[in-house]
Design a binder for these strands. Structure first.
Lengths: 206, 206
DNA sequence: ACTATAATGGCACTCGGTGCAGAAAAACAG
DNA sequence: CTGTTTTTCTGCACCGAGTGCCATTATAGT
C-alpha cells in the first residue's frame, strides 16, 4: 500500500514550477527514428517536434540546433571519457592507456548496439552532421590532450598533446567508419588494430 | 599598336554570352576582409554581395554557401596535393613521403603568408567554419588514403589507409593550431615535429 | 538588326533559429 | 480554497541562409 501521506505525484521533486513534459533523450530517440526512416534533410524540426508532442519553440529549449538533436547527451559521454582516463594508473605507458581508454569508451551494451549503430550511421553519414560533429570532437580531443599533457609534463595546448589527441580521434573515427561499412565487423577489434598504428607509427609499416 | 583586326575586348574568349563580372577568388578575398574586420556571424551574405558589387542571388552562383566562401578554391589545392603525392618516388618510405607532402602542401609564398594566416584564423577559429571544414578535410583525407592504399597494396577504403589519412590530417591541423597561436612560430618546423610523432608513434614517447 | 548563349538580378518562398510575452502547471502559504 | 511564486510550455513575429523561377543584360556570330 502507498503511504497515505504520499499521493504519488509520479515525478515529485519538492521543487515548484511546471514539470518538463519530455526529456532530451526521448526527443533524440524520436528524432533518430524519423531521420533514419525519412532522411535527415527531408525531416523538418516541426516534424520532430510534432512526433515528440511538443511545440517547435520548446524543442529549441531542449536542443540548440537540429544537428545537436542527433548527438543527444554528449557531455555525459565526455565526462565518462574523462573518468576513464583518470582511472588509469600512472605507471601504464601512454600508448597502452590511450588504447584502453578508446576501447572502454566505445564499448556499448549489446542491448543498445543496434540503436548506437543507427545514431552513428547518421552522425558519420549525413554531411550536415559530419560537419557539426567536428565541434563535439574538439571537446573530446581536449579531454585527451589534457590527459597526455599531464602525463608528459606539458601544457594542455602544447603541440605534442594536441597532435596525439588528433591522432586518437582519427583512430576512433577510422574504426567507426569501417564498423559501419561492414555489419559483421567488431568495433573493438578495429580499435585495437588502429591503436597499433597509433602506438607504433607509420614508420613501422614500410 | 594593336592590330586592326583585334579591338582588344579585354576578356574575349571566342564564346558567346555575357562575361562574369567577378571571380571566386575576388569574392573570397573581399569576404575574408569583412569576416576578419567585423566577425563571421556578424557579416551577412548581403554585406558580402554588396562589397563584391554583385547581387545576393549571384553570389550564391559563385559559392554554394556562406561557409564555402571562406575556403575559396579548395579543389585546386586538392589537385595540388594529389600531384604532390604522385610525384614522390615509389622507393621513398611511406612515412617520409607523407612528411614531404605535408610540408610541400602547406608551404606558401611569403607574399601570401599574411593572407593565408587570416584565412586560416577564420577557418580554424570560427565554429561554423570549423564544422564546415570537416567536409573539405574528408576529400583531403581521401587523397591521402588513396596514396597510402596504393603504396600498401590495399583498397582506398580499407582500415589502414583511412587510419593513416586521419592521422595525417591531425598532424597538419595540430601544427596549424600552434602556428596560429604563436605569431613567431614556423609552420614547417611544426609540421616536421608532428610528422615525427606520426612516423614513430605514441609508443616512442614513454 | 536578329539570334543564340551565358551571366546577372529580382522576387517569392522554405527552413533553421531567436526574442518576447503570455498561458499553463506545480509547490507552497495563508 | 485562494493567492503567490516558480518553472516550463507555447504562439507569434522576426531574421538570415539558401533555392526555384523568370526576366534582364551583355556578348558573339549571322
Amino acid at each position: 500500500m502507498t503511504p497515505p501521506d504520499a499521493p504519488a505525484p509520479l515525478t515529485q521533486t519538492g521543487q515548484p514550477g511546471r514539470r518538463p513534459v519530455t526529456s532530451r533523450a526521448q526527443i533524440s530517440a524520436v528524432a533518430i527514428d524519423l531521420f533514419t526512416a525519412n532522411g535527415f534533410e527531408e525531416t523538418s524540426v516541426d516534424d520532430v517536434a510534432d512526433a515528440a508532442g511538443i511545440a517547435r519553440r520548446t524543442l529549441f529549449r531542449y536542443y540548440p540546433s537540429k544537428n545537436a538533436i542527433a548527438w543527444g547527451d554528449f557531455d555525459g559521454h565526455l565526462d565518462a571519457m574523462r573518468a576513464l582516463l583518470a582511472d588509469i594508473p600512472p605507471t601504464e605507458p601512454i600508448a597502452d592507456a590511450l588504447r584502453r581508454a578508446l576501447i572502454s569508451f566505445n564499448r556499448v551494451p549489446p542491448a543498445e548496439l543496434a540503436g548506437h549503430r543507427r545514431r552513428m550511421t547518421l552522425l558519420l553519414g549525413v554531411p550536415a552532421l559530419q560537419a557539426h560533429s567536428m565541434l563535439m570532437y574538439a571537446e573530446w580531443r581536449q579531454v585527451v590532450a589534457e590527459f597526455c599533457a599531464q602525463r608528459l609534463g606539458l601544457s594542455d595546448d602544447d603541440h605534442l598533446p594536441q597532435t596525439i589527441a588528433w591522432m586518437c580521434l582519427g583512430t576512433a573515427l577510422a574504426a567507426y567508419d569501417q564498423w559501419l561499412a561492414d555489419p559483421d565487423a567488431d568495433l573493438e577489434t578495429l580499435i585495437i588494430a588502429g591503436s597499433r598504428t597509433l602506438a607504433e607509427g607509420v614508420g613501422a609499416l614500410s
